[in-house]
């Protein structure tokens, strides 16, 4: 039942999803403000936990946490900007600013990494093909054919291998003869796949592929919910752009790290926080509804 609880967000139209991911990732990439990056990372992590569960997240942490500290602590070794010198290492100053900059950079990197993970889980190949099918129809066709060939060729490989084993081709052991046998299978597979797929191509042109005025069926419908979601995303993203443009979300590390002054930036933090937490909120809402309905049945 896990997948039923956890696909509320991915039921949005592919265009809505693409607009959302691109907006969040671009803001994360181009706004170095630590608060924004922290919010983005939190949103990405919470969403990925909803999508893939806490076990997968714990596994990720074991891999990413050391990297996080590596990025943070190696930056001062290579960069000696900044006014607050902590200590000297081999006669080179290690500065607080460089350390903070490293941490900020790590926040940004892992924010983008987690959002990419979510993108990978949500934007399945059918959605991507739908998105790219309009501007790049031939490319999408090549892509979808390759996607289909991968499992097909795997199966065929096994078939050829079985046939050759039955003929006694794999009877002698040893590394070299194994390689020779594999090469023979590969050769047969390549010949078979070219012949077979060119038939597909000819049959497609015979049926009028690529002619004008041909329509194609698509599973995705743009509903009111999707349009509303796009508008909300764009409005919230626009507020972040305003914040960056007016300097409210500016932050510098060198020579001295800036200190937050007035509270004017808080509004921008809140608005971006809403944007970053939208998928998590949607998934949570869906999960709660599901639980509630379950208990009433």
């Amino acid at each position: 039942m896990k997948h039923l609880e956890n696909n509320a967000f991915s039921r949005f139209h592919p265009i809505s999803l693409a607009v959302y991911f691109v907006a969040v990732m671009l803001i994360t990439m181009f706004c170095p403000h630590p608060v924004i990056l922290l919010l983005s990372l939190a949103g990405g992590i919470l969403f990925s936990i909803r999508l893939t569960g806490t076990d997968a997240f714990a596994k990720d942490c074991r891999f990413y946490l050391p990297l996080f500290f590596l990025v943070t602590f190696t930056n001062p070794l290579f960069s000696h900007n900044g006014v607050t010198v902590l200590f000297f290492l081999n006669g080179k100053p290690i500065t607080l600013e460089a350390l903070m900059y490293g941490a900020d950079l790590a926040l940004m990197l892992f924010g983008v990494v987690f959002w990419s993970k979510c993108w990978g889980a949500v934007m399945t190949s059918d959605k991507l093909l739908f998105l790219f099918g309009k501007p790049f129809p031939r490319l999408s066709l090549v892509l979808s054919m390759s996607l289909r060939y991968i499992p097909l060729f795997k199966k065929k490989w096994q078939e050829i291998k079985d046939a050759q084993t039955a003929l006694g081709c794999f009877s002698e052991g040893g590394f070299l003869s194994g390689i020779r046998s594999s090469t023979r299978i590969f050769s047969a597979l390549v010949t078979w796949s070219f012949e077979n797929t060119i038939d597909t191509g000819m049959s497609m042109s015979a049926r009028g592929y690529g002619l004008k005025n041909r329509t194609s069926y698509s599973l995705f419908r743009l509903k009111r919910r999707d349009v509303f979601f796009i508008l909300l995303t764009l409005a919230l993203a626009a507020s972040a752009v305003v914040g960056i443009a007016t300097g409210a979300l500016a932050y510098i590390f060198y020579p001295a790290a800036s200190v937050p002054q007035d509270g004017s930036a808080i509004l921008f933090y809140v608005l971006f926080g809403v944007l970053a937490l939208l998928p998590f909120a949607e998934e949570t809402r869906e999960a709660l509804t599901w639980r509630y309905l379950l208990s009433n049945i």
Partner: peptide
């Protein structure tokens, strides 16, 4: 990508390309 789209590529060539992509991924 745009150049590839613009050339009225033969479907058969596209299929051969798809095979090569699949082989390299495999």
């Amino acid at each position: 990508f745009a150049v590839f789209e613009k050339k009225t590529a033969d479907v058969r060539r596209m299929v051969v390309l798809a095979v090569l992509v699949a082989l390299s991924v495999l």
